[in-house]
Structure formats: C-alpha cells, structure tokens
Write a protein that binds this DNA or RNA. Structure first.
Lengths: 202, 202
DNA sequence: GAATTAAATGAACGCTTGTTTTATTAATTG
DNA sequence: CAATTAATAAAACAAGCGTTCATTTAATTC
C-alpha cells in the first residue's frame, strides 16, 4: 500500500497535532515514540515526516501555537482602560477558562520545556514572559493607585499564576463543579489575596 | 579493572541518589540514561544495579523518601492544639522552607509520577493525599470556627498548595530575596486569601 | 487519458536504551 | 595468610529509538 483512499494532508496534520498533544500530556514527550503518535493517527511513522521535520519540531509547534492562542485570547477580552480590579478580574477569568479548556495543551507547554533546544526554549519563554507581564502591569497599577495590596509585584504575579494555572491539575469538567463556579471561586480568592478594594473612586 | 580502591557501598549509593535526583530534575526521568547517572557518580552503568534493581526502582525510592521526609518535617513542627490560624501559618512556613531546600527532589516527585507503575503511583499518591489532608483539616476547622473564610475546602486547599509549591519554579536562593522573606510574603498572601481573622477569642 | 503532484507505505539504517552476565580486584574475616 | 564477601569493570544482549529512502498508489491537472 501507499497513498490511501480519501487521504487528505490537512486532516492528517490536524490529527497528528491532536494525537501528539494528547500523548505528550499523558505520558510525557520523551516517553512517547513517533510510532505511538502514528498509530494513534492511523498511519505509519514515516508519514509524520511529511508534516514535521523532527519530533522536536512537532513539540515546538504545539507549544508555539498554544502560547499564541493564550495571548490571543487575552487580547480579545482585555479591557481597554478599566481600573486595575476590573482588569485583574478579566485576566483571572480568561486564564481559568482558557486553561480548563486546554488542559492537555497547557500541560505540554508547561512541562516539556526542557526538551526544547536552547533557541526554541527562549522563544517560548519570551511568549510566556510577555503574557505574564500583563499581570504584573495590572498589579503594579493596582498597587500604585492603592486599589490592590501588593507587597512584591513579581512574587505576587508568580503566586497568582501558579494558583490559577494549578486548576488543570485537579479540575475535571463533568464533576461536582462547573467551569463557572471554579472561575468564580478562584477570582474571589485572587481578589482577597490582593486585598482588592472594590469601592471605586476614580 | 574491577573493584576500585577506596570504594564503599554506602557512599556509592548516596552518590547515585544525589546524581539521579539532580539529573531527573534537570532533564526529566525519561530523558536521563543509566549511563549518564553512572558517569555523574563515576562508575559504570552496571554498578547501579547493585543498589537498585531497575531504573524505575530508583525513581520510586527517590519519590518515596521525599514524601516521607515531607510528612516527617511537618510532624516535627506541627502545633498540637493551636488555633487554625496558627496551624495554617506553621503549615505554610514549613512547606515553603522544605520545598525551597529540596527543589530538585520536589520537582522529581511532582513531575515524574507518570513514569511509575500503577501500583507505585497510588502508593506515592497515598502519601501525598495524607499530607494534603493536613491542610484540609486546618481549613475546615478554621471555617467552622469562623476564623477563616473558606468557600470550598478542597478547592482552597489545592489553590494554596499550588501557590506555595510554585515557589520552586522561580525562586533561587542567593538572589534578591532570602528564604525568610519569601516565606513571610507567601504566608501573608495565604492569610489574606483565607481572610484570616487574627484576633484571638478562644 | 497521460503527466504530474500529493500522500502514504514498508523496509531499512545506525545508534542508544535498560539490563544481564562474567570476570576481576579490594576489603574483610577467621 | 587463606578464604570469603563486597564492589566494580567490561562486554554483550535484545529491543526499541528517531529518521531516511525508494517506491507505490490516489488525486489532480492539462
């Protein structure tokens, strides 16, 4: 056999991405073989190389598109000139929803960084830093205007990011909690954590 | 050559553990080869098998002893019959200090769970659950006595654990912050997060 | 309908993996 | 000092790895 009936490049590539995200998230990049990915797609391992030059290229592309999607999703909902409390609320809400919907993808992007080459690692980290800077800016504005209590902007930003990203470790939809409830509870914790003063005075 | 002058089983085993923790933490269990561990110790790969039956046995033992040490360290400082706020403070403080001192070990225990067999995975998870239960108990007591504001005990426990464990991701000693400062700041955030009422009334 | 392009196969490559076996030397014991 | 045990080296093992190559078939184009 060679080319199979009904085969389509675009569909195959999409299937490879999905299978790879799923397997990488579940078993880890290093533990997954190209033959396992191919088997999940329903092709031979050699077929993968039509779409991605190497296994690492595949990993990198998954991470790159994940980070781009994360930044893009924040760009859509980001309040233009709102006060810090409102911006912080929007950030947390968007972050939680995005991560719950993309658990596997997030897992890969957070856990498999060490499998990237130096150059590609710093490329992904640059995207991550850009995203985290959004939160730091909100916290700084909040601290300066007195609407938020922030001892240390960098430390608080990391603490909040860790807390709200951690949702993917334990949360599974279809259980006792809905995404809405989880997002609301995390938002409440974040606002208490920053002692958010919700009385407007601008 | 065979046995080398000055060779000592206990020292070799300890060196294997240290080298393995370090390499597993840096590059990931699957990416590290037995030959790399052996090279870091200064022996041949076959020598490892005098001390650990398989590579997975080595990983498991590192995780098991890490979790045992964590639980043991809490046992030492745990306040017997103190009020919830004081117990929560002690828990966070101990957790931060332990994890900062054992970054590599924590990394391995948190990230390499999927490389364990089913049986061993549940053994480690049982230890982890026992540890986390301590926090949940504190939060429940605090909620019932009105000293802590906790919407959802399980969710809050996970959020706090994620936040205070996340310190190992970014914190490096010898930088602008000391362990004491970091522990203090995280404690302050935790207490605000739970809206801890520090006015005693028992 | 022939020529071309796209999509995939199947076999093979060189290399590395975790592990086992065997032999050898150092330290300890009686 | 002889016998035994502990600690290692060295070499080999089969299995599996990511990747390449030549080839074949399906779909498209002219």
């Amino acid at each position: 056999m060679a080319r199979t009936t009904g085969s389509d490049g675009e569909r195959t590539e999409a299937a490879i991405r999905e299978a790879a995200v799923d397997l990488f998230a579940r078993r880890g990049y290093e533990a997954v073989t190209t033959r396992q990915i191919a088997a999940a797609v329903g092709v031979q391992a050699a077929a993968l190389y039509r779409y991605f030059p190497t296994k690492e290229d595949l990993l990198f592309e998954l991470m790159r598109s994940h980070m781009a999607a994360l930044i893009g999703s924040w760009d859509v909902v980001r309040p233009a000139d709102a006060d810090p409390v409102e911006r912080l609320s929007a950030f947390v809400d968007n972050h939680i929803r995005f991560h719950v919907e993309r658990r596997h993808s997030t897992h890969v992007s957070n856990m498999e960084l060490r499998s990237l080459s130096k150059e590609r690692l710093s490329q992904i980290l640059r995207l991550r830093t850009a995203y985290e800077k959004e939160l730091r800016t909100i916290l700084r504005d909040g601290a300066e205007s007195g609407r938020l209590a922030v001892d240390d902007v960098g430390l608080t930003a990391m603490a909040i990011i860790q807390m709200i990203t951690g949702v993917i470790v334990w949360f599974r939809p279809d259980e006792r909690l809905s995404v809405e409830e989880v997002a609301r509870t995390y938002l409440a914790m974040t606002l208490r954590l920053t002692a958010a003063d919700s009385s407007r005075e601008n």
